[in-house]
Design a protein around this nucleic acid. Sequence first.
DNA 1: CCGGATCCAACGAGATACTG
DNA 2: CAGTATCTCGTTGGATCCGG
Lengths: 121, 121
Amino acid sequence: MEKEENKEKPYICTIKDQEEIRYAQDALYVLNGKWRMPIIVALYNGLYRYREIARNIPGITFAMLSKELQVMELNNLVLRIEDPDFPKTVEYRLTDYCTSLYPIVESLINWGRQHRKVISS
Amino acid sequence: MEKEENKEKPYICTIKDQEEIRYAQDALYVLNGKWRMPIIVALYNGLYRYREIARNIPGITFAMLSKELQVMELNNLVLRIEDPDFPKTVEYRLTDYCTSLYPIVESLINWGRQHRKVISS
DNA sequence: CCGGATCCAACGAGATACTG
DNA sequence: CAGTATCTCGTTGGATCCGG
């Protein structure tokens, strides 16, 4: 980090810019990685079971999903609900906290849909 | 990739889920990495010059910004406008294509702002 | 069927020094 | 001022094996 260099020149910038950039960075910190948002989409659409989720996210492996879900549980993004019956079933749910992220995910989906239309026309 | 395993079971899932997940993945492919979105925010807010941008994105180095801008230019996200005068000045602008991404960035900022409020209260 | 643990490759990211 | 070229390093991502 060579923040010294950045700070040395106070520079005529509107504080607003810096703040918006920081907000974006904060959100990115929570949502970083390749799989976090797709997993949220899956859960949001009612895919709750482990293999169910894995099967519907193109390219993900079980190991990656497992690791991501662990981290997301620690970060309070998902809840893990285990049923002790046999065969063992586990469900994952979005926390309310995570649900508040959905506008971001939604705009992502909308852009993707629009973009698909554009490039295929 | 053990997609074979994923494909083997057609499985009762609504196609809609898969499509939304794919759309999100498409968008993420364009916006991946730690710096792409912050750079877009900076440009969107009227920071056009190289050092101006670097100074206003916390944590970024000149080298990272340089590399990102190159890739973003190739991907048609930014335009590089060089003025041959001395001292040399270069401006970067968002392309229209990139501007269409701004709803995503905006929702990111809004969540970040909201989140800041929540954790500081 | 539900995963976790481990090991390793690939890539992203940063430090540093240098150029026009 | 506006970059580029390497080099290193940590993290992400993935394959494989293991357990309840």
